[in-house]
Amino acid sequence: MKVNVNRYKCGYCGACVGVCPGGALELIETWVEVDENTCTACGMCGRICPVGAIELVK
């Protein structure tokens, strides 16, 4: 499983970065970057995204 950020939906607010327990996400300027080595695919980011731009995919 991995995290997929739909950059066409994302409002780059950084809420997902704030809840990521492992610090695997980063808000660069107008996009969110996922460090796949650190991400545990816990899904916390997808749960709190205000627009539903984040999904766990296989």
Binding site: G14, V19, C20, P21, G23, M44
Partner: peptide
């Protein structure tokens, strides 16, 4: 550096928020 803060984490302060 706001809600998406990394600076604290880099210094070993766990600022991660629960839902």
């Amino acid at each position: 550096d706001g809600v998406e803060s990394k600076v604290g984490r880099w210094a070993g302060i766990d600022t991660s928020l629960k839902p």
